[in-house]
């Protein structure tokens, strides 16, 4: 099942991204770190897929590969009917406009020498989108859509607050009328009050423009609020993938269970109902991943055979898959 017939805007299959690493020693073998290792997922048009997981698990790398901002070693990234990774020239340029990125750090991601209007207009100019005379109109509309005032177009990035800068980043991402927006920790650098404004804005824009989001965040409260489904990554692999309610109410993978149990909550009922599951230690060296389940050395329920082979993702129900030898499917 792929392409638009299934309702998926994005469908990623067997995506693998590896980085060469230098190894010391006499025999300089060429080694690779597999940051994303044979990962598949799909996102329905107009929906949000969240990717969560430990620092270093490959969330950003997977997202960058989807947007062709790093090279995939293997795999396909279907955007609608096209394989985005094999497009060239004009077709690629057109497809690129359909995929935009919103970064974590609104401070670092905007060109400090450009006025806000130029920042937002730049992608239009570089893609040569629409009549040049019409572009100002588009910029006006975008400023309105993200809740900035017209007179603020003349200001430079440093004259804005963090939340306003993130709004500029969003306006810029919207400029080319994208279908897919990849948000990598879009609110982590913001204070909670401003975070709420941006999250509400992202959901409103999704409705108004029919946007599809790939949403990366380490804040599971935020993820719960934003997503329709979630993929949980651990050391380059997806270990669990489910719709929002199944994942949060009925997590199956021991890592997901530990992760959710670790989130502090203001809800007393949740605190009383949750037994914290500790996973001591660190993930293994990503350059030499273990042969079996990559979570085995920290897993509270692991048995010796878990280290023999890698568990495959298996279906539990319509929209729930999990990669653990000990979960009954």
């Amino acid at each position: 099942m792929s392409g638009e017939s299934s309702g998926n805007l994005l469908s990623v299959e067997n995506l693998t991204v590896r980085f060469p690493v230098k190894q010391g020693g006499l025999f300089k073998r060429k080694t690779f770190l597999y940051a994303v290792d044979d990962v598949s997922f799909a996102v329905k048009r107009g929906e949000t897929l969240a990717i969560v997981g430990e620092s270093g698990s490959g969330k950003t790398t997977a997202a960058l590969a989807v947007a062709r901002l790093v090279d995939a070693h293997l795999g396909t990234v279907k955007l609608g009917e096209h394989d985005f990774l094999t497009l060239k020239d004009e077709a690629l340029r057109k497809a690129r406009a359909k995929v935009q990125f919103i970064f974590q750090d609104p401070y670092a991601s905007l060109n400090p020498r450009l006025r806000a209007e130029a920042v937002v207009r730049e992608p239009l100019d570089s893609l040569d989108e629409g009549e040049p005379s019409k572009r100002q109109e588009t910029v006006d509309e975008l400023f309105k859509a993200v809740g900035l005032r017209p007179e603020q177009q003349r200001l430079f990035p440093h004259q804005f607050s963090g939340g306003q800068r993130q709004r500029i980043g969003i306006a810029r991402a919207l400029a080319t009328r994208p279908e897919l927006i990849i948000c990598d920790e879009p609110v982590s650098a913001l204070d909670v009050a401003v975070q709420a404004q941006i999250l509400n804005l992202l959901r409103k824009l999704q409705k108004d423009f029919g946007l599809t989001y790939l949403f990366i965040s380490h804040d599971l409260g935020v993820v719960q609020h934003m997503c329709d489904s979630i993929a949980v990554m651990y050391m380059g692999k997806i270990v669990e993938h489910a719709d929002r309610k199944s994942l949060f109410n009925n997590p199956k993978h021991p890592y997901t269970q530990a992760l959710l149990s670790a989130v502090p909550s203001v809800d007393k009922k949740r605190r009383e109902a949750t037994k914290r599951i500790l996973i001591p230690g660190d993930p293994p060296d990503p350059i030499n991943p273990p042969k079996g389940c990559r979570f085995a050395n920290r897993c509270p329920i692991a048995v010796p055979s878990c280290s023999d082979s890698q568990p495959a993702l298996r279906a539990l129900g319509d929209s729930h898959t999990v990669a653990c030898h000990l979960v009954d499917c």
Binding site: A196, N200, R203, Q224, K245, F248
Partner: peptide, 19 residues
């Protein structure tokens, strides 16, 4: 203004309160 994890997640997702 913060979306919290709660004991039992429902389909309800009201807008976040803004300050």
């Amino acid at each position: 203004c913060v979306p919290h994890l709660v004991a039992q997640l429902s389909d309800d997702r009201p807008e976040l309160t803004e300050v």
